[in-house]
Simulated scan of single mutants.
Amino acid sequence: MKLMNVTRLRKMPLWTHWRSRFEEIEHEIRAEFQNLHRFLDEEEETDLERLRKERDKRVKILKEREKKFAMQSRDLEKAIETLNCKLREDDSPKLLKEIKELLKRCEVNFIRPPPIDSEILSGQFVGPIQYRIWKHMKTSLYPNISTLTFDPEMAHPHLTFSAERTSVTFEEDKVQPNENPDERNPNRFHFYYCVMGSEAFTHGRHYWEVEVKGKTAWRVGVARVDIPRGEMDSSSTLNGLWTLSLRNGSIMACTHPKPTKVLSYTLPIRIGIFLDCDKEEVSFYNAVTMTPLFSFYMGTVLVPLYPYYNPCDTDEGKNCAPLSIFHPSL
């Protein structure tokens, strides 16, 4: 915990501190929903403005048609009046001779206006409006959905990856190259069956999901870049690991000095991980229902943080399903 937070706690009762934190979180929730309301209000106004422009465009076309009709009607009335005046004159041979010329002079070219689309279809303006707005909303989602892969250079030698480096399995019989311990890759894990992600985080907020369906054991979360690659005296928060694990049918938060059992009515098939570097927190969710599972306060971390994965061993053939990075289709 930061020094200033410790000092603040010493000066105020615990309940006063809690109340202050609840108020801060309430303010944050309201701010996030205000951003969503603002986004929806802007989208609504954009759609209504598009509707108004289409309405004004059609009204303008109708007014122009009416204006042309009126002008041609006046020309036609004038021609009719001219003909009537001439016809009221005496029926003389001179009138008969001039009738052809008169008709030609009074001729009115009536131009039929082009047809217009009189139908106004709601699909042009409404349609699948919720889906359309959701697609627009994707560009403003925060945090960004991180598109991650595994880093084989950090992986335990018994781990095998898919071609896309998004799926990992443990293979106990995997043939290993002869490697001199003195020449061992210092980034590679050689005790725990784990691997880190290919992307490091130092600031901002990030979210990713891990598919754990069909597995009887796994461990996922966040780790410091400098965690030991060999055996640790404690593979918990003490050594820079903030993880959840599944063992013997129970989900455990790997806290120090002992693990904390996570209450979950059903075992998740996919785990969501939310890393907030600025607030120094990492939280876990059932990614299908987005139900919170557990949150860690990390404290100040001065080195990069990496996604951490451990598919665990095969558990006598019961844990052969892969551990996979799931990329949500938004």
Rank of each mutant, 00 (worst) to 15 (best):
S236M: 05
C194H: 13
L141E: 11
K67Q: 14
I227K: 07
R219E: 15
E211S: 02
C320M: 11
N144V: 08
L51R: 08
D315Q: 07
P115H: 10
N109P: 12
S235F: 06
L102Q: 01
V6R: 08
M12A: 12
P257M: 04
N180D: 15
W208D: 13
L246S: 05
T16V: 02
P113G: 14
S283I: 01
S245E: 13
E28F: 04
S118Y: 04
S245K: 10
L293F: 07
D226Y: 14
E77N: 10
P114E: 07
P113A: 13
L302Q: 05
P181E: 13
L141N: 04
C106I: 02
W208P: 03
F69C: 03
V210K: 02
H158V: 00
D91H: 07
E43Q: 15
L14R: 15
S295N: 03
F201N: 00
V126A: 06
F326D: 00
S167Y: 00
F125K: 06
L87M: 12
K318D: 15
R30S: 12
T255F: 09
V108Q: 07
I111P: 01
I325R: 13
M290N: 01
T46C: 12
I145R: 15
K68V: 10
C106H: 10
K68C: 02
V6P: 02
S329R: 06
I61Q: 08
R229E: 01
S245H: 09
P177C: 02
R8P: 05
P311C: 07
Y285C: 04
S140Q: 15
E54H: 14
M290Y: 03
E179S: 09
F201L: 01
D90R: 05
I129E: 08
S295A: 05
D75S: 15
D315W: 04
